[in-house]
């Protein structure tokens, strides 16, 4: 056990799995950085330094710099997974799915079904997502709802360093294709993380706060915001349950429905856009299966239906914040008072 950043936890997960299983390889744009150049052959270790040190340890056969052409190397990772390797491929920003989605959507995700259950594709796609980096519209999106929509893929949103290590190890060991979303604003966030390898199973939500009044379901980085809001609200006598589903596919519907049944109120926090996003998805789930336990309308806290803006002034108001979550919880609770007043 020692303090590790989100970045270090992800790096350690890859290192330990590559040590454990030589079929695990890593590829992506500048995952080493410097291939073919005269200088340092591990110059970057990924654009955020997440893969730093893996090239020197495992060599150029297992840590492969690629050309900057995503459809071919993401597809090559899929083909390698289909034929016996366990590749980790880094899609630098999830926004770049636009240039390689066919290999994920129509190839990787479909192999097992189309081939009658005979294909095993242990592919891990690591990708950066999220706003807050002043990176504007093409490097800041939260496109996990798009991937969640597709049967055959598993989608993982680690909310902190502990979660990141255990979920990435599970992703690498998993025999199905997994898209692993790393929030770029969290790489320096530190916490206690075991030194030993461990795997966190998919489809098992983590209840990070337990309360009686409102259930907050939040995804990825938003889990931390929801926790902060819950702690602030606790000082005002409002107790919240916070659910981190960990994976959007598979989704732990059981824990969500159980905790909503206990509190009778739901706020969903999602950094993605509101249309066809996880927030609407969870709201639909609860409306369909737990309608009778609801004491108030569901509130959704999401980013707006707008591209991520560049200007810090705009981006800061774009991202769902702790204050918005607190206001949503207050509004949900206020419903009781309004009904009582009528």
């Amino acid at each position: 056990m020692s303090k590790k950043s989100y970045r270090q936890a992800i790096n350690e997960a890859m290192r330990q799995e590559m040590e454990r299983d030589e079929r695990v390889i890593l590829m992506g744009e500048d995952v080493a950085g410097g291939t073919g150049a005269a200088g340092d052959q591990d110059a970057w270790g990924g654009p955020m330094g997440v893969t730093k040190g893996l090239r020197p340890q495992f060599g150029p056969d297992r840590v492969l710099d690629t050309h900057l052409a995503e459809i071919s190397f993401v597809g090559a990772a899929a083909g390698a997974a289909l034929t016996g390797l366990r590749p980790i491929v880094e899609l630098m920003f999830v926004d770049f799915m636009g240039v390689c989605f066919d290999q994920i959507l129509n190839q990787t995700a479909k192999f097992r079904y189309m081939f009658g259950g005979k294909a095993v594709t242990p592919l891990t796609i690591r990708t950066m997502y999220g706003a807050g980096f002043r990176a504007a519209s093409q490097h800041s999106q939260c496109l996990y709802p798009v991937f969640t929509h597709i049967p055959g893929l598993k989608v993982v949103l680690p909310s902190n360093a502990y979660e990141a290590k255990g979920l990435l190890i599970q992703a690498i060991r998993d025999d199905d294709p997994v898209v692993f979303f790393e929030h770029k604003a969290m790489y320096d966030d530190e916490m206690e993380v075991p030194d030993e390898p461990y795997a966190i199973p998919f489809g098992e939500a983590n209840v990070t706060r337990e309360g009686d009044d409102v259930t907050i379901v939040a995804f990825g980085r938003m889990v931390n915001f929801a926790n902060e809001a819950a702690d602030n609200l606790a000082r005002r006598g409002i107790s919240c349950t916070v659910v981190d589903p960990r994976t959007t596919s598979p989704l732990d519907t059981e824990t969500i429905l159980e905790t909503v049944a206990e509190t009778g109120r739901l706020v969903v926090v999602d950094e993605a856009h509101p249309r066809c996003g996880m927030a609407g998805d969870i709201a639909g789930l609860v409306a369909e299966h737990a309608f009778d336990s609801l004491k108030a309308p569901i509130k959704l806290v999401t980013a707006p239906h707008a591209p991520v803006p560049f200007s810090p002034a705009l981006e800061d108001i774009y991202i769902p914040g702790v204050d918005k979550i607190e206001a949503a919880v207050a509004a949900v609770l206020d419903h009781d008072r309004k009904v009582a007043a009528e």
Binding site: A80, L85, P87, D102, N106, F115
Partner: peptide
Amino acid sequence: HIADLSKGMLGANGIVGAGAPLVCGAALT
């Protein structure tokens, strides 16, 4: 989408050109 992985046949493909990246992966393996 007919395929037989046991014979090294990685699939017919409904997407034109999609086999080329996959073959790079098989060759890498």
